[in-house]
Design a protein around this nucleic acid. Structure first.
Lengths: 328, 328
DNA sequence: TTGTAGGCGTTATCAA
DNA sequence: TTGATAACGCCTACAA
């Protein structure tokens, strides 16, 4: 492996001059620049990035936290972040927290050991108090999930509004017995706010909210199928359900059809996200501008890294909208 | 930020001894070890990984190449690889090639600049001749996609068999006019072998293969919908189609039902992968053990990194099986 | 416009 | 069992 020294020797110049050429510094004579470039090519030289990192105290690498990459919401988020990062010459380290506090803490060490310049969290497992100390080692940006205590930039969606317009939509279609599914992450603002929006819409319309119409642990298609079987067995059945995700909605729709129910006549269903799945299953859903928040979060992250100032709280909240299909 | 020097000073010992403790070397007196550990805790010390990388010439990081992470096949592959890597203390850098040669070449530089210890490729955009030179900088393992020229370990699925059993299944159900969808990557062995399996089954059964029943550029749900509209407009229509993926199959099924066709009576459809989607849409499909190949590939990668020997060709081929549902 | 030299934080070699 | 010292490869004052 050729080093900067080898290049310098071959070009008949000093390491300094070679370094200047590599880093595009001013005050290098055109002729020497050519000499260096030629030597670099001849030796098939590339700067060793471990050495650069050590010297510059920067890695040009960002860690992205997701619960699981197979969740389509998060894979889309990661795709848009990777695009934005690559464009600015940054790499992404993928960290799957698997919904576990311990796994999240494990990955936080990446920042402390200087393996990455910053962290983008799309979900939060631990209390903010346990994450906060890591701010001493580099910037953190929240994307999607949020927290009131966190004094960092947050790019997220207006989940109160999401819950509200989704529920309102059902109400406007004449449904009155509206059930609610939730992922039930105790500390999740996303889930909490969405529920606030739902309750607000229900209250405004003077509709009742029964505890038996609250279905929790709803994440996946199979959770949706399980929830349908609960609904099927209930005496006091809802006539429609607000779900937290297209997967859950799809699972309910699938199980309902299988049981001979008509959607939306016997049960209306509204999803969340507008995944390809929603179109396939003809689900009305609440669309989230996933690519946009991913890109904005990554751009913000890089801005934070470059402007070495201490971080400040800054909320960017994006709107949501209903996509109507045949499930409502 | 505390350095090893600070720890040494506080413990009243040399850097060497501290380093020995960090790296669990023998010949450190228990008492000094305690002293060092205490000093490390007091200073909240962690070794700087950039310095370790430079010194050890290793990064404990692996780059994983996928075309796009939003493709569920690849996100599942990445999930299983990340699990396997994390278990052995390795990180993953996510590289989306976006089906582009140039992007793939761009990311190959990660290996040359020593940002990663090795590469796992799940798809191949460039000719092997253009990738081969990078073997000089570290190990490469192929997972899913393969190539005959590549003298590296390959973990893949028996795609000939996949095409064969999928087609055979249709034949056994009485279909005779069997269409074929393909992603049409010229150089892809996955696509090529699968087609070989299809042709083999057709030939054995003495069934005709018409060029107009070959549908290319089939990757996504919307490609499937496009393909259905082609089928609909054809005079000589197939009675069934073998698709390269559940997404394409789902798209065809969706468009067919919308147009009032019955599946499988008017058109039978077989998918590939056994994604959650396949269950939702009731698609018969060819199941691939994605998690297994992901894990095996990552374990092989780490083995290659540790055993600094030159790489050798080694094929690991896993079987596939039919999952029957109502689309055939 | 170019070069000298020191240091980023570790670890490995050698000597004690 | 411990320590001094020299790399690893690069960048950047500072001096010329």
């Amino acid at each position: 492996m050729a080093t900067i020294q080898d290049v310098a020797k071959l070009a008949g110049l000093s390491r300094t001059t070679v370094s200047r050429v590599i880093n595009d510094h001013p005050y290098v004579a055109e002729e020497k620049k050519r000499l260096v470039t030629k030597a670099m090519e001849e030796l098939n030289y590339v700067p060793n990035s471990s050495a650069q990192r050590l010297r510059k105290q920067a890695t040009e690498t960002i860690a992205v936290y997701v619960p699981r990459i197979t969740n389509p919401f998060f894979s889309q988020l990661v795709e848009s972040m990777e695009n934005a990062a690559a464009q600015k010459g940054y790499q992404l380290i993928l960290c799957q927290t698997r919904y576990k506090k311990k796994q999240e803490l494990f990955y936080l060490e990446l920042l402390r050991t200087k393996q990455v310049d910053g962290l983008v969290l799309t979900s939060i497992e631990n209390n903010w108090d346990d994450i906060k100390p890591y701010l001493a080692y580099g910037p953190i940006v929240l994307c999607n999930e949020y927290s009131d205590e966190a004094e960092v930039p947050v790019i997220h969606l207006d989940q109160v509004e999401g819950g509200y317009i989704g529920t309102k939509h059902l109400i406007s279609q004449g449904y009155k017995r509206i059930g609610y599914c939730s992922g039930n992450h105790k500390s999740s603002r996303v889930a909490g706010d969405r529920r606030i929006g739902y309750l607000k819409a229900m209250k405004e319309a003077g509709l009742p909210v029964y505890p038996e119409w609250y279905y929790d642990s709803a994440y996946s298609v199979s959770d949706g199928m399980r929830i349908f079987s609960i609904i099927e067995s209930q005496d006091n059945k809802p006539d429609s359900v607000f779900t937290g995700s297209d997967e859950v909605a799809a699972g309910i729709a699938k199980a309902a059809k299988k049981a001979g129910w008509r959607v939306p006549d016997d049960l209306a269903i509204i999803g969340f996200d507008n995944q390809p799945l929603a179109e396939l299953m003809d689900l009305t859903t609440v669309e989230q501008p996933i690519d946009t928040i991913g890109r904005l979060a990554m751009e913000k992250m890089i801005e934070e890294i470059l402007s070495k100032r201490p971080q400040r709280r800054k909320r960017t909240e994006l709107p949501l909208k209903i996509i109507q299909r045949s499930s409502t």
